[in-house]
Structure formats: structure tokens, C-alpha cells
């Protein structure tokens, strides 16, 4: 496995949703009630979009929803549902469609990444959780 590392976590903003939504970004379709919006710095080449499968971005064992990307700057803004500790394994796994990633597949990806030497990244949570109305408002932030 060739690990595709996330370079750093630029920012982390906790949020709470007034109107939860059902995420399309894994086979489990978790309901997102709150979590953390991360801005990550990555290799810009990993942010180009094609219609064939691209490496999936994970935090821990779960794919994360991409809200926005700045390919030129190599920045990507993602949603991590639920609680997030002071550190997390953040990495690009194998090419796939995120909606097809089961919990078992996610666990395998993390195990492979850790076996390949993946280390956790520090999460620089810098503020108290903000209240956001809904999914659209979250994407617009």
C-alpha cells in the first residue's frame, strides 16, 4: 500500500446542527447531528476530480464528506460527524465510491494505513461549537 498522507490539519471547527441530515458518504448513511469541520492541507493532485474512482479521504475508519476543495491551494474542507479527539488518523485510502464503504471496509483501510506507518494528526480545535441550521448552511460556511 502506498500511503497518501494528509499534510496537516489547518483548522477544526466543532458544530451542532439544528436540522440533522443523513450522510451519503458511507454505506452506513449515518445521521449527522453535529461534529467537526476540518480544513486539511493535502497534495493538490489528490483533489482533482474524475468520474472514475478517486482515493477516498478517511478520518479514522469512516470516509468523510467533502464540502469544498481548493485544488490550487491543496486545501479541502470536510465534515467529521460526531466527537473528535485531540488526535485522529486522517489519510487517503484506496480508490472507491465513498457511498460503498462499509464499516468493515473502513476498518480494513485504517488497519492497512496504520500497518504502513500512518501516524495520527493533532486536531487544533480552536473554538467552541457553533450552531448551524442545516446541511446547506454547513456547506456554505
Amino acid at each position: 500500500m502506498i500511503l497518501l498522507f494528509v499534510l496537516r490539519v489547518v483548522s477544526a471547527t466543532p458544530f451542532v446542527l439544528v436540522e440533522p441530515y443523513r450522510s451519503d458518504w458511507s454505506a452506513a448513511h449515518p445521521v449527522v447531528r453535529g461534529g467537526t469541520v476540518l480544513v486539511l492541507e493535502v497534495d493538490p493532485a489528490l483533489l482533482t476530480m474524475t468520474n472514475t474512482p478517486r482515493p477516498v479521504l478517511y478520518v479514522g475508519e469512516a470516509p468523510v464528506e467533502v464540502l469544498a476543495r481548493d485544488v490550487d491551494a491543496g486545501l479541502v474542507r470536510v465534515v467529521v460527524p460526531g466527537a473528535l479527539g485531540a488526535e485522529a488518523f486522517i489519510y487517503f485510502g484506496g480508490a472507491a465510491l465513498p457511498e460503498t464503504i462499509t464499516a468493515e471496509a473502513g476498518a480494513r483501510e485504517l488497519a492497512s494505513a496504520r500497518a504502513a506507518g500512518l501516524l495520527p494528526l493533532r486536531i487544533p480545535v480552536s473554538a467552541a461549537a457553533v450552531t448551524v441550521l442545516d446541511h446547506a448552511a454547513l456547506a456554505g460556511r
Binding site: 451519503d24 464528506e65 465513498p98 457511498e99 460503498t100
Partner: peptide
Amino acid sequence: NNTEPGIEACST
């Protein structure tokens, strides 16, 4: 079109 998660999402 919500294409990035996959075909099910964009069909939705």
C-alpha cells in the same frame, strides 16, 4: 448532482 459519494447519491 451529488456525484462524489457515488451513483446512488447522484440518482437520488
